[in-house]
Design a protein around this nucleic acid. Structure first.
Length: 417
DNA sequence: TCTGGGGTCCTAGGACCC
DNA sequence: TCTGGGGTCCTAGGACCC
């Protein structure tokens, strides 16, 4: 038995937690740059604001309807997520944190429990200890537990906990679930499946597995098996990250090479900090730049990867490689809208394969420099010490509706009177 | 004027090997 | 006129997730 615990409208709930007067009010949270809607409270959903809606297209409507708009505040969401997960870890021993607002739990060993009552208890404790409302779905496979969770969210009389008990019940629910709402079926596949007469989750569960495998992939075949109740996807330990991406859309279009370069070098610096914090090293870097896909006329998009001859977490080495790549792919006279860098071929520092002609891991002096750099920036604030190649402001973003970092900055702590 | 950021997995096809 | 069979490794691109 698997349980899926999912926070309800997570980002919106986080914002509401510190603004209790917004209980029952419509709330939306915007993506970086205040670009589009990435989270909505139930009230906002009811007003017909779609997921992914560009902010500028809905500004008037949202103002007229009194929607409370927030810029995304990831330090806040990350911290509250960690609190929720730590409570869940106490309640369910085998937990897989699947995303910022979801976790799967292996419920084997809970056979002598009343699972429904246990679910209610977990829900109550998480709410009481963190203030975040969650829903819980349970079933014999991960894919079905996703669907059970959906039922728990949509059906008030479940009290936020729903468990698939028998096949008749599963069949009845699957018939009502649209194919596109099944975990693992995105828009492309959903369109294609519909053309082949597969409309509901139940249709997919009945489909011929071999045909699915041939026409789509082994991934979709697994989804079919999971819908039938045969578990193919197990609880996983948190795997090491294999790639690390830092990218941003720009607030204003960037045209100059110097400017683009200084921004990208800042991204590299940021990525290297993350890499060192997780105790890893990387051996290749990829860099991309592009114009807006929405603007008319000829656009330009290009990327380049560079392989290093040894693993490293040294910012200056990677900045050099990144700068080289940018010189190759930069074309003048374009208005760049987005750029980013990716570190690839990442392994734990203690696990790296050395080069035949290289006696030791990456340069001792560089290692010490990075340690010092991280130490100073941790103590005196971000970018106290930075590379000359990176811009002082790493990215300039629109964040016109940002809430305080209530739980991660001393200055933003709530004051109780 | 304005449309996010950060990931994973699988497959096809090319380059290469004997 | 006729040109094998069996493999590995890597990369780009496409699908998916939240």
């Amino acid at each position: 038995m698997f349980a899926l615990v999912d926070c309800n409208n997570f980002y919106a709930s986080c914002e509401r937690l510190f603004r209790p007067e917004l209980e029952g009010q419509p709330i939306v949270v915007l993506s970086n740059n205040d670009g589009c809607v990435i989270a909505r409270s139930n009230e906002a959903k009811a007003l017909g604001i779609p997921m992914g809606a560009p902010e500028f297209k809905y500004r008037k409507q949202m103002q007229a309807q009194g929607v409370h708009v927030f810029s995304s505040n990831f330090p806040l969401y990350g911290d509250l997520s960690a609190r929720v997960m730590s409570v869940l870890e106490k309640l369910s021993p085998d937990l897989e944190i699947y995303s910022i607002d979801e976790a799967f739990a292996d419920m084997r060993g809970f056979n002598h429990y009343d699972l429904y009552l246990h679910g209610l208890k977990v829900r109550r404790i998480v709410r009481q200890w963190t203030g975040i409302p969650v829903s819980i779905g349970m079933a014999s496979t991960k894919t079905l537990s996703k669907i059970a969770n959906h039922v728990a969210k949509k059906t008030p009389r479940t009290n936020g906990v729903f468990i698939f008990e028998n096949q008749t019940q599963i069949d009845n629910v699957l018939k009502k679930i649209e194919i596109g709402d099944v975990w693992g079926v995105g828009r492309k596949w959903s369109d294609s499946l519909k053309n082949n007469g597969i409309i509901s989750a139940h249709d997919l569960a009945q489909a011929d597995e071999n045909w699915i495998r041939r026409k789509y992939s082994v991934v979709m075949q697994r989804t079919v098996q999971e819908l039938k109740g045969k578990s193919c996807i197990s609880i996983e330990d948190l795997p090491e990250k294999k790639q690390l991406l830092v990218s941003r859309s720009f607030r204003e279009r960037v045209t100059s090479f110097q400017h683009l370069r200084s921004l990208l070098m800042g991204y590299i610096s940021r990525a290297c900090e993350k890499l060192r914090r997780q105790g890893s090293v990387a051996k290749s870097i990829s860099l991309f730049i592009r114009t807006s896909p929405f603007s008319e006329g000829a656009g330009y998009s290009n990327s380049m990867s560079i392989s290093l001859n040894q693993y490293t977490a040294d910012t200056s080495t990677l900045i050099k490689a990144g700068a080289y790549a940018l010189e190759r792919i930069f074309k003048p006279d374009y208005e760049y809208q987005k750029a980013g860098i990716m570190l690839l071929d990442i392994v734990p520092d203690h696990f790296q394969q050395l080069c035949l002609f290289q006696a030791e891991k990456y340069n001792d002096a560089a290692r010490k420099r990075m340690k010092l750099l991280d130490h100073i920036n941790a103590k005196y604030g971000k970018q106290t010490l930075r590379f000359a190649a990176e811009s002082k402001k790493r990215w300039y973003m629109h964040q016109d509706h940002l809430s305080p970092a209530y739980t991660t900055r001393w200055e933003d702590l709530l004051v109780v009177r």
